[in-house]
Every structure is written in C-alpha cells, then in structure tokens.
C-alpha cells in the first residue's frame, strides 16, 4: 500500500512538473515525458511511449491530457489515470486563473516576453534532442519501409499540412498490411517445406 501511494505521488509530482513547463503545444509534453518516464525512471519502454502517443493523438481533446491519462493508466491503473489527469490540468488551471486578473499587464510586459522568446529556443532544442534519439532508433531497425513511412509522414504534415489523424490512419494501415504480408510469406515457406 505504501509503495502504491509512493508511486501515485511520484506520478502526480512528475506530471504536474512536466505540465507546468509544456510551452508550445502537446508534443513538447511528449518529449518531456519520454525523457522522464522512459530515459530517467524507466517505467515504460520507448516503443510503448510512441504507441501511447499515437493513441493520444488519435483521440479528441488535448494531446497532453490524453497522453497523461494513458501513461497514468499504464503505470498504476485507474487511480493512476485520475492522478495524472489532475497533475496535468492543475498547472494551466492555476496559472491562467492567476494571470486572468492582470493579463493585459502580463501580455505587454517586456521582461516576460523576452524570457518567453528565449525559452522558445530551448523548447525547440529539447524537441530536436528527443527527435534525434527517436528517429535514430527507427533508422537503427534497418527496415527501409519504416524510414520511408517516417520521412513521408514528415513531408505530409510539415509541408502539406495534412491532418495528423489521416497520417496516423494511413500509417496504421501500412503497418497492418506489412505484417499481414509477412505472415503470408512465412505461411507459404512453411507449406513448401
């Protein structure tokens, strides 16, 4: 029971802390979660983190909230999911509540703007770092089709602004067909022996 409570507490503090620094959209928290839960705590594997991200992206609502729910559920079941939802939602709730009373002063403050501009470069670097690791691991699998999927998905989303939903859908179908063809080939080889 004590261990379980410690786990929940750790889940709450981690998601609270990560959510408080999720500047610049949902994928920033994915990058931070990958660093924290895969590299640092080793609670889940890299493949599983990417699977959960795909599900989070395909569901309605904010990617950050969806990913937190999945992660919490994976680590500690339903109590885990509830804890991570609260942990993820509280920082923006508190910050916006506080700022809403003097938001004009906040928005027009030079110092705040300068710090946020500086931080944006750091956020870009954090994502770049995570992408280099993840992309490197995909390339290491030495399977040309996955590299091709990655490059075409990037071109589709970045240059052609195609909705991420469709990209996820098409890539999922490609993966299923690939496995099906492999299974068929194996079957044929077994039969011919």
């Amino acid at each position: 029971m004590k261990i379980k409570n410690n786990l929940l507490l750790k889940l709450f503090t981690s998601t609270f802390y990560l959510s408080a620094f999720t500047f610049g959209g949902g994928y920033v928290i994915i990058a931070l979660m990958k660093k924290k839960f895969v590299d640092n705590l080793s609670w889940i594997g890299e493949d599983e983190m990417l699977n959960l991200t795909a599900i989070a992206q395909s569901s309605p609502g904010a990617v950050a909230v969806n990913a937190s729910i999945l992660l919490g559920y994976r680590v500690a079941g339903i109590p885990g999911a509830l804890i991570t939802i609260v942990g993820t939602v509280l920082p923006p709730l508190i910050i916006i509540s506080a700022i809403s009373f003097f938001y004009k002063a906040f928005r027009d403050n030079n110092v705040v703007n300068a710090i946020l501009n500086g931080m944006q470069a750091g956020v870009a670097a954090v994502i770049a770092d995570v992408v280099l690791n993840l992309g490197g691991n995909i390339c290491k699998e030495k399977d040309l089709s996955y590299i091709l999927v990655m490059v075409s998905a990037f071109i589709a989303t970045f240059f052609f602004k195609i909705n991420a939903m469709y990209i996820i859908l098409v890539c999922g179908i490609i993966g299923a067909v690939k496995v099906w063809l492999q299974a068929k080939r194996v079957k044929r080889e077994v039969l011919s022996k």
Binding site: Y27, A54, Q57, I138, A164
Partner: peptide, 11 residues
C-alpha cells in the same frame, strides 16, 4: 506503422 509516423509528427 504508427511509431515512425509519431516521430515524424513530433519532428
């Protein structure tokens, strides 16, 4: 098939 796509979305 989704994993490389997700990496591309993050990128």
């Amino acid at each position: 098939g989704l994993r490389p796509a997700v990496v591309a979305l993050i990128a």
